[in-house]
Structures are given as structure tokens and as C-alpha cells.
Design a protein around this nucleic acid. Structure first.
Length: 294
DNA sequence: CTGGGGACGGGGCCC
DNA sequence: AGGGCCCCGTCCCCA
């Protein structure tokens, strides 16, 4: 399926894992100290309860959806087990994930020793940040530089709540704000949700299929899809290849065909460097086993 | 297994 | 707001 920009994605890293809230086992493996974190900014004096899930080297199998790649680190005692943040302004500073694109810097667990699932979550978090879901509130914070005061904070771009740590913000995004700050339009025929009514209406057409072919009765969601389908009956091929005499009924298919004339193939296997004209061919190639590590 | 064509889906953009 | 079109993409099939 094509990537849908307006569909609210139910990605695992954005989905609250409510079961974890009640899990005592989780508490055994993951440090979840709870302490009131006072945001000392003049503009933001709200008191937030903040939790800091930590990845513990001694519990390699405990990373869950609730755990972010974030480890409270004492700069003077980097090898020490992460400790409960104090309530004082001199509490341990933490390094946001994006600081050096190496979430386990200064932690006990080298990146290359991670399980694939853990590594995947790291990349997901990176994607989240690149997508603008997580917004550090200042350049200093972006660089991971602990500020001179506790005013350095991470701010939710939706509700502007500020958190002292990256993980605090990330949890806020996971558990609360995602569903409170947006109004989603839900499809009554399926469980898809859209960020705009127009997008939802467009999607509903894929259920109602109002455009019906008079020749074969096949139904389509939009008129131009029907037009393209009718060409399969008429044989009309309005899209011609400038390099050869071949013509196509569909512009996308012409575009794919043009790749066959290109000496440069866009998609390259990371393992064997073989190139492919389509990403689907590369995917097939990788799934066939050329890139066991990918 | 690979390469390519056919058919089609869905969001964005423009009018 | 809605239609038309574009772009990007997937799935299936076949040589």
C-alpha cells in the first residue's frame, strides 16, 4: 500500500502501551522513578510528574514500547547505574537522543550489541524526531548540552508543555497529547483515521466506489481511476515512451518503463551493491537473502 | 530469481 | 468543497 501522509499511523512507538502502566514486572527491569519536576521557566511554572524510563544493561530483554533510548547519565560517573533523578536543580542532566544520534553514548550498552528490535526502536525514535514530532525547545537542548539552569527543556509542539528531559516529552506524546491535541476523523467502514475531513471523504470513496464501469461493472473510487480502467477496454495508450515506440495507458507505468532506459538505477543493495530500477525489485532481492543484516 | 508491464490506490496540488 | 490531474507507490502476473 502506498504511504499515506494523512492517515494517522498506528506505529508501535506512538501507540500507548497501557498494559505497561500496570506491569509490576516492568518496574523490576526499568527504572521508573517518579518525581515532581518543576519547570522553572517564567512562562511555564506548571508542575509535571515526570518519569524517566531507562535502558538497563543488565536487562537486555526488557526494552518495550514504553522505553525510550534515553539514559540518565551522570557526567562524573558514567559507568554508574542510572539513578533516581533528584528533585533539586542540580539533578543529573540527561542527554537527549538526538544529541549525537547515538542513544547509548555514555550508557552501559553499546549500540552494536543491541538486539535488532531495540535497534529498530532507536531508528523509529530518530524518525519521530526528524518528522518534527519531538521538538527540543532550544539549540542547546538540541545539541544535548545541559543548560546552565533547569530552564533547558523539551517542549511539546502541540500543547507546549515543557519537560526537563527528552523521555518525559516522549512519554507525554505517547500517552496523552497525541489523542488530546488532535481531532481525528474516523472512517465508519474501517478503523482508519484522518487528520482532515477532506481526506476522510476521499477515503470513504474507496469503500463506496461510486464510479462504475459501464462495460464490465467494476467500480472505482474516483473518476480518473475509472478513466484509466476504461483504457483497458479501449486499448487507448496515450502515454508514449520518447525512447522507444512503446505506449502505455498509465503514466505511472510509463515512468516505470523509462527506468529501463536509464543507465543509472536508483535503488542499490546495501550488501552487494547491485542496483535495481524499482524499489520493489530491491525489496525482493533483499528478502531473498542477500542482505541478512538489513 | 529477476525484470518489466498492467492495473490500480491514495494523498497532494491546483483550479 | 469538489473535480481533475500528478506523483508515488503497491500488487500481481508473466517471460
Amino acid at each position: 500500500m502506498p504511504r499515506s501522509f494523512l492517515v494517522k499511523k498506528h506505529l508501535p512507538y506512538k501507540k500507548p502501551n497501557y498494559g505497561m502502566l500496570d506491569s509490576k514486572e516492568h518496574e523490576l527491569h526499568v527504572s521508573l522513578p517518579e518525581s515532581p519536576c518543576s519547570v522553572s521557566s517564567p512562562q511555564q511554572s506548571t508542575l509535571f510528574w515526570e518519569t524517566e524510563p531507562c535502558l538497563m544493561a543488565s536487562t537486555p530483554n526488557t526494552l518495550t514500547q514504553m522505553d525510550f533510548f534515553h539514559t540518565p547519565v551522570s557526567k562524573t560517573q558514567p559507568s554508574q547505574t542510572p539513578s533516581v533523578p533528584s528533585e533539586s536543580p542540580e539533578r543529573e542532566h540527561t542527554f537527549p537522543v538526538q544529541a549525537a544520534f547515538h542513544p547509548f553514548r555514555d550508557s552501559h550498552k553499546p549500540l552494536d550489541t543491541l538486539r535488532p528490535a531495540d535497534l529498530q526502536q532507536f531508528h523509529q525514535m530518530q524518525e519521530l524526531r526528524v518528522a518534527g514530532e519531538l521538538v527540543p525547545s532550544s539549540p542547546a537542548t538540541l545539541l544535548g548540552i545541559p543548560g546552565p539552569s533547569s530552564q533547558e527543556r523539551f517542549e511539546c509542539f502541540d500543547c507546549h508543555k515543557a519537560y526537563f528531559t527528552f523521555s518525559g516529552l516522549a512519554k507525554h506524546r505517547q500517552l496523552h497529547c497525541e489523542w488530546q491535541c488532535h481531532k481525528f476523523f474516523s472512517c465508519k467502514y474501517c478503523d482508519k483515521e484522518y487528520v482532515s475531513l477532506g481526506a476522510l471523504k476521499m477515503h470513504i470513496r474507496t469503500h463506496t466506489l461510486p464510479c462504475v464501469c459501464k462495460l464490465c461493472g467494476k467500480a472505482f473510487s474516483r473518476p480518473w481511476l475509472l478513466q484509466g480502467h476504461i483504457r483497458t477496454h479501449t486499448g487507448e495508450k496515450p502515454f508514449s515512451c520518447p525512447h522507444c515506440s512503446r505506449a502505455f495507458a498509465d503514466r505511472s507505468n510509463l515512468r516505470a518503463h523509462l527506468q529501463t532506459h536509464s543507465d543509472i538505477k536508483k535503488y542499490q543493495c546495501r550488501s552487494c551493491s547491485k542496483t535495481f530500477s524499482r524499489i520493489s525489485l530491491l525489496s525482493k532481492h533483499e528478502e531473498a537473502g542477500c542482505c541478512p543484516m538489513s
